[in-house]
Design a protein around this nucleic acid. Structure first.
Lengths: 114, 114
DNA sequence: ATTTAGTGCAATCATCCTGTTGCACTTCAC
DNA sequence: GTGAAGTGCAACAGGATGATTGCACTAAAT
């Protein structure tokens, strides 16, 4: 658990917005174009298009031409990897806390290194 | 996979910032106060204090009095739950894509519902 | 060729976020 | 009590972000 991948920060940043979650929820029901998404959300097509670019940059979404429209679909690969990494990190944090408690029980004070 | 928990969005938002990652990385090496953290990071103590409040609001960090100082430590419980949820979501997305490919192979076009 | 649907790009605006400085308050040490 | 360390709160500046409008471009349908 050295440092967080750049990708993870990017994914988290992308998932830190309500509108983007709304978009992803729509995409869970099937691929859709920016215009189609705009008809069900309280923002303009251009705003959604921008959000989709961010999601695509984070690897959460891919697009595909279908005639004159671009259909976006949610892709789980990157998100799965990020989730795994976060899970490991969380486990490490909890493990650390357990170790501290064990040492506390054995009477040794675990001061700050540095 | 109905909708994302409010907590997950908050956690993602909290993890979408580089300074906060830097703080968490420090906390992985041991609990520390805002002032102590400020000595190793290129931002002021007040800025760090604000970040710590955000991390605390997301449940990624807890604090504890030690004399006149407040020591913060990373807690994995919430993050673990969020990671799990994200992992399930990612798996669902990939599963959806597989289903589409299966149907495509059997000749049926999976148009958009709606 | 004209119309229509879908998209992209640029400029603009309001808002939020991050970081700063400055000051007041508490608490430990002397 | 005095000084120093640690913290909290408030006001402010700068930059990033989310959303809008307006216009131009491409591709399918008539």
């Amino acid at each position: 658990m050295n440092g967080p991948d750049r990708t993870v920060v990017e994914i988290c940043s992308a998932l830190g917005d309500d509108t983007r979650w709304a978009i992803l929820r729509r995409l869970e029901a099937g691929a859709a174009s920016a215009s189609a998404l705009a008809e069900g959300l309280p923002v303009t097509r251009q705003a959604i298009s921008r959000h989709l670019e961010i999601l695509r940059g984070a690897g959460l979404v891919e697009r595909e031409r279908h005639g004159r429209e671009l259909r976006y679909r949610a892709v789980g690969t990157r998100l799965g990897a990020a989730a795994n990494q976060l899970g490991l990190m969380a486990a490490a944090w909890d493990r650390r806390l357990e170790l501290l408690r064990e040492r506390a029980t054995s009477g040794t004070e675990p001061g700050q290194p540095g």
